[in-house]
Amino acid sequence: MTSHPARQPRDADALVVDDDSAAVEELIECLAKAGLSCLSAGNGGQALQLLAEGHRVKVVVSDLRMPEVAGLEFAGRLAKLAEGSRPEVIFVSGHAGFDDAVEAIRLGARDLLTKPVDGPRLVRAVKAALLVRQARERAAPVAETVTGGPLDRKRTALKDMRSMRKMRSQHFPTELFSDPCWEMLLDLYDARLAGAEVTVTSLGVASGVPLTTALRRMDQLTEHGLIERVSDAGDKRRTIVRLSQEGLDAVERFFDTYLNRKAN
């Protein structure tokens, strides 16, 4: 399938990426009925070309299984874009496995929907991602003023810890470091810095342990007053999990101590 952008670069709420033209038309129809503007592309390579040509989109809805540049590789390339031009990502798939879900969330995907996609759920997911994007845009001027400051250094330290986690998994059996509590706190802190929301399900999947284990650890973190769970105002079936004020203060103190020791 070929892409169908306007000749001149333009803005759109969503970019739908799938090599199945019928699926693209169906998804765009659902989003258009909800008043959302859309572009389309047949694979990740075409989508990246649209962005390179100057088309700006706020949310990407992408299939996982595509020729040339597949969904996860596509998301990895999007993650390298500058903060102001990087869209939120929602994946759709009929064959997503656990490993796919974990990797998608690690790459910053907002959601992973299964095919056939439920139209109302797709619209809710895209609108929720648009709200996250708006919050990120409002926070951008503040972030620019603290480049090189405490917040910027904490983001760098967090990135270093994530890199260490990946390197550790390459040399040691994963089960030796399977307790997810610390990883959850880091993921929630990362979301806090980005102005993003995290659902209980996505946090559990990203933890890399069975969901039942992840839920037990969330209960423990809640009992210690480090996290809190609230209903999603836009979708009562979803539960948002975030650092409590006590949890945020604790993580902030950790990074302050870590950075002070690293500087000395």
Rank of each mutant, 00 (worst) to 15 (best):
M1L: 10
T2D: 09
S3D: 09
H4C: 01
A6Q: 13
R7M: 08
P9T: 12
R10G: 11
D11P: 00
D13S: 12
D13M: 07
A14S: 03
L15P: 02
V16E: 01
V17D: 00
V17C: 02
A23G: 03
A23E: 08
E26W: 04
I28W: 01
E29V: 04
C30V: 03
A34T: 02
A34M: 05
G35Q: 08
L36N: 06
L48P: 02
L48E: 10
Q49T: 14
L51K: 04
L51Q: 03
H55F: 05
K58Q: 12
V59E: 03
V60N: 06
L64G: 03
R65D: 04
M66G: 00
M66D: 00
E68S: 07
E68V: 15
E73P: 00
E73S: 10
F74A: 01
A75Y: 04
L78V: 08
K80I: 00
A82Q: 13
A82P: 01
A82V: 11
S85G: 00
S85E: 15
V89N: 01
V89I: 15
G94A: 15
G94L: 04
A96I: 09
G97F: 05
D100L: 06
A101G: 07
R106W: 08
R106A: 15
R106N: 13
R110M: 06
R110H: 10
L113W: 05
T114Q: 09
T114C: 02
V117P: 06
G119C: 15
P120S: 07
R121S: 02
R121A: 09
L122D: 05
V123N: 05
V123P: 01
V132S: 13
A135P: 01
A139N: 09
A139V: 03
P141D: 11
V142S: 11
A143D: 14
R153S: 13
R153W: 04
K154F: 06
R155E: 14
A157F: 09
L158F: 10
K159R: 15
K159S: 15
R162L: 12
R162F: 15
R162N: 10
R165H: 11
K166R: 15
Q170R: 14
Q170W: 07
H171Y: 11
H171I: 14
F172A: 10
P173I: 08
L176A: 05
S178N: 08
D179Y: 14
W182N: 05
E183Y: 05
M184K: 02
M184S: 06
L185C: 08
L186Q: 14
L186A: 08
L188E: 01
D190Q: 13
R192M: 09
E197N: 12
E197H: 12
T201Y: 10
S202G: 06
S202I: 07
L203Y: 04
G204R: 03
A206Y: 02
S207I: 05
G208N: 07
V209A: 04
A214C: 09
R217P: 00
Q220R: 14
Q220A: 11
T222Y: 02
E223D: 14
I227H: 05
I227M: 03
D232P: 10
A233R: 12
D235S: 11
T239G: 00
T239V: 14
T239K: 12
I240Q: 07
V241Y: 03
V241W: 02
R242L: 00
R242H: 06
R242Q: 13
R242G: 06
L243T: 08
S244V: 09
E246R: 13
A250Y: 11
V251T: 11
R253H: 12
F255R: 05
F255I: 10
D256N: 13
L259E: 09
R261S: 10
